[in-house]
Design a protein around this nucleic acid. Sequence first.
DNA 1: CGATTTTGACCAGCGC
DNA 2: GCGCTGGTCAAAATCG
Length: 468
Amino acid sequence: MAATWNDAIAVADEPTASHSNSQLMSFSHKRLALDEMDFFAENKKTNQDDHGDDHQMLHRIEVNVDTSLDLLTKNTGGKRSIKGDGDDERNELAALLAELQDMNAENLRLRELVDQVINDYNTLHLQLIKMMQTQHSHGGEQAIEEKGKKEGKVPRPFLEMGGFGGRDKAFQQSLEGSKNLVELMENKNVQQICTTRDNIVLERNKDNNSKARIMEESTSDQAFQLGWLSNKVPRLNYLMDHVDQPSETMSIIKKARVSVRARSESSMIADGCQWRKYGQKMAKGNPYPRAYYRCTMCTGCPVRKQVQRCGEDRSVLITTYEGQHNHPLPPTAKAMASTTSAAASMLLSGSMPSADGLINPTILESAALSYSHNNMATLSSSAPFPTITLDLTQESATHSSSSHQQKDNLSLLNKFMSVSSFTDSVNAATAAITADPNFTSALVAAITSIIGRSHLNNRDTNNTSGDQ
DNA sequence: CGATTTTGACCAGCGC
DNA sequence: GCGCTGGTCAAAATCG
C-alpha cells in the first residue's frame, strides 16, 4: 500500500501534470484528513450499534472521488492534464483516492481499537488486582504466612505496607469506579491479553503448585508495574527469592528504562508531563550534572526521569524514563509515555512467550542491532538496568541526505517495527516528533510506509487466516 | 503562601 | 570492611 501513496504522489508530480493537479492532491489530502475525523466521530457512534460503518465509508469515498474528479476537470478546463488515456487516468486516480481513503479510515479504526483494548486492559488490570486482594485477605494470606514460616522467610511486605487502598486513595477510587469484571471479560481482545498474562505468571510457577504463591507473585508483579513498591525493595531480590532461574537471565529482570537522546538547548525536552525536580548529582565521567525528576501529575505516580547533557556533545540532551504512569495523560504527554511504556514492555515482557517465560535476549539484541546500525536505538546490557536508547540526534544527517539513505533509515525503522508492535512503533514515531520537530519529515515518510504495510498485512491476513 | 528548586546528607549496591 | 557511585530524602531557599 506504500506504493499506492507513492504512486499517487507520482501522478501528481507527473511532468505533464499541471500545477492544478498538485493543488488537487493537496486539496484532496486535506479534505481526506477532515473527512477522516468526521467519519471517525460518526463511526464511533455507529459502532456502538455495530452497523453502518462500511456503507458510510463507501458513500464518503464516492463523494470524495466525485468531488476530486470534478475539481480536476474544472482546474484543467475540461482538458486532459495527464498523459495517456484520460479515462484510464481518471479511473486510476479515482481508485487511488478511494484506496487512500480506505486505508486511512482503516488505520484510524485500528488505532481506536488498540486504544480501546489498552484502556480496557488497564481497567481490567486494576479490577483483577482488587479481586486478588480480596482473595488474598480471605485465604491466601494464611497460606503464604504458613509457607513463609516453613521456609523461614518473612512474608513479602507488599500487602503489609498498606496494600492498595492504604497507600493510594486515588487508586482505590479508581478501583471503585472500574467496570464490572464480567463485562470486561466479554471483550474478546481483553480476554486474549489477560490469558496471555496469566499464562506468563503460571508458567513461571509451573514447578510450584502452591496457589497462594502464584497469587502472591501475581499481585506483587502488578504492584511493581504500577510502582507501588518502594524502589528500596528491589524486584530482583524478590524474584531471586521466589523463582529458581539462572542468574544470567534473572539479572535482566530489573526495571526497564528508556533513554531518549535528542538535540535541545533547553534544560528539558517537552514531553507534556509535569515534573518536579527532587535531586541533582554529578555523575562520573560527565562534566554536566544529572537532574532527577518525578512525575507530579498525580500523587503517587511512580514515573521518574533523569536528564543529563551528553558529556561529548553538550547539545545532546539525554532523558531517561523509568516506570509507568498510573493516571490519565494529556494528549501531548501520551506520545512519550506510550513510547517509554512500549519500549519498557518490550524489554521486560515483549519476548515473554518464550518457554521459560523470561526475556529472550536474542530477540532484543537483534532489535537493537537493527537500530544500532544507524545509531537509532541501542540496548545496553552493561547498565545496571536494561535500557533501550532511542537516538534522535542522527536525523538531521539522514533528513538532508540522499534518498538512498532515507530508504535505509526506513527499512531500519520497519525492522524495529517488526520486532515491536505496530502501535508501539507508531507511538515511538509520535514521540520522536514530540521530542524533535525536525524529525517530522523523515517520520511522515516512515509512517506512511507503515500504514501502507499495515494495510497490506491486513489484506494478507484476511486472505489467509481471516481471523485477527 | 503554596509549589518548586537547591543542596547536603543518607542509603544501598558493587567492586576491590 | 571500605570506598566509590547512583539514587533518594528532606530541610532550606527561592519563585510566582
